[in-house]
């Protein structure tokens, strides 16, 4: 009975955590994958992993975020996404968008899809979650230098595939 009570308490704690944090996880997952379906799948995977280890987790939030980022850049997940994408020799023509265009976020979404999974993860951590370079390196399990170079490359790539975002990039670089 005591065990059952403890188990019930653990389950309640997990469900409370899910209710409170799933929305935030979904936003991060969407930025990481650029795809609603993949984002859902990624969040559910991370929450399942957390549930399996729930009794041993000191910081569930940190664990789930780490799973989100590491799974998002894992090679097999990237491969699955590639299958649904059509690769072309040249980027498709883009319509002209001014800086004040309300569809600028669509341009960004499109541009993020053209980055590598790691570059996207670095940008999300640095500019969406406002993580420092060292925090980003620690979460992704890479070196500080890698984070710096990935950030630089990601922003350069953004400028190339979406010149409309140049101003935003420049501010970010600053």
């Amino acid at each position: 009975m005591v065990d059952a009570g403890m188990s019930g308490g653990m389950r309640d704690g997990f469900e409370e955590f899910v209710r409170a944090r799933t929305g935030a996880f979904a936003r991060t997952a969407y930025l990481l994958t650029g795809d609603r379906q993949h984002a859902e799948e990624l969040v559910q995977t991370a929450l399942t992993a957390a549930a399996e280890r729930w009794t041993r987790l000191d910081d569930p939030e940190r664990y789930v975020r780490r799973v989100l980022y590491t799974r998002a850049v894992s090679w097999w997940r990237v491969r699955r996404r590639w299958r649904s994408e059509v690769l072309t020799d040249a980027p498709p023509e883009r319509r002209a968008v001014s800086r004040d265009d309300p569809d600028l976020r669509i341009v960004l979404a499109d541009a993020l899809k053209r980055l590598t999974a790691k570059q996207r993860a670095v940008l999300v951590l640095r500019f969406y979650e406002d993580r420092s370079e060292s925090e980003t390196a620690e979460i992704l399990g890479v070196g500080l230098g890698t984070v710096k170079s990935q950030t630089r490359d990601a922003l350069r790539r953004l400028r190339a595939v979406a010149p409309e975002l140049a101003d935003e990039n420049e501010e970010a670089m600053r």
């Binding site: 929305g23 979904a26 936003r27 991060t28 997952a29 969407y30 930025l31 609603r36 984002a39 859902e40 600028l104 976020r105 960004l108 979404a109 993020l112 940008l123 999300v124 500019f127 969406y128 406002d130 975002l165 935003e168 990039n169 501010e171 970010a172």
Partner: peptide
């Protein structure tokens, strides 16, 4: 800025 744009984009999450 990029931060704001990303936050707006994140709101489209399912």
């Amino acid at each position: 800025d990029l931060r704001g744009l990303m936050r707006e984009l994140a709101e489209e999450a399912p």
